[in-house]
Nucleic acid binder design. Sequence first.
DNA 1: AAGCCGCCTG
DNA 2: CAGGCGGCTT
Length: 147
Amino acid sequence: MFFYTRYPSSNMLKMFFSDVKFNRCITSQLIKWFSNFREFYYIQMEKFARQSINDGVTGVEELSVSRDCELFRALNMHYNKANDFEVPERFLEVAQITLREFFNAIVAGKDVDPSWKKAIYKVICKLDSEVPEIFKSPNCLQELLHE
DNA sequence: AAGCCGCCTG
DNA sequence: CAGGCGGCTT
């Protein structure tokens, strides 16, 4: 689901995990999961952004996220370890936008501000996509594997 | 008081 | 990931 939405609302989670009987704990736990997912995501972004700068990249035009780049492999390894399904194209776009946001911010020296990432989060949270209906099924994993 | 976020730890 | 916690919003 993370490949589609980085900031799912609690209601959205309830919709997609219909087979789960929600209570305060379950809800906050799922919210927590996505929080952790985002954390890993942004850490990777910052890491690769800084790495590219050290590697001599001078402009965001030189930065792209494809299915065979290191950044993607790191993310896919984390969220889609078994490579169960095809990552949507949109995710690659969002990832690239995120990477470039970090790159520009760092180059502009904005990282001196303790809360410099906030601005980036504000941009990325608006890039969530709709999650396919299949994911609402309790057996979505099996169904996806049959495709 | 609740609920959620984000940062830090383990 | 889960725990713990401060901090902001409702």
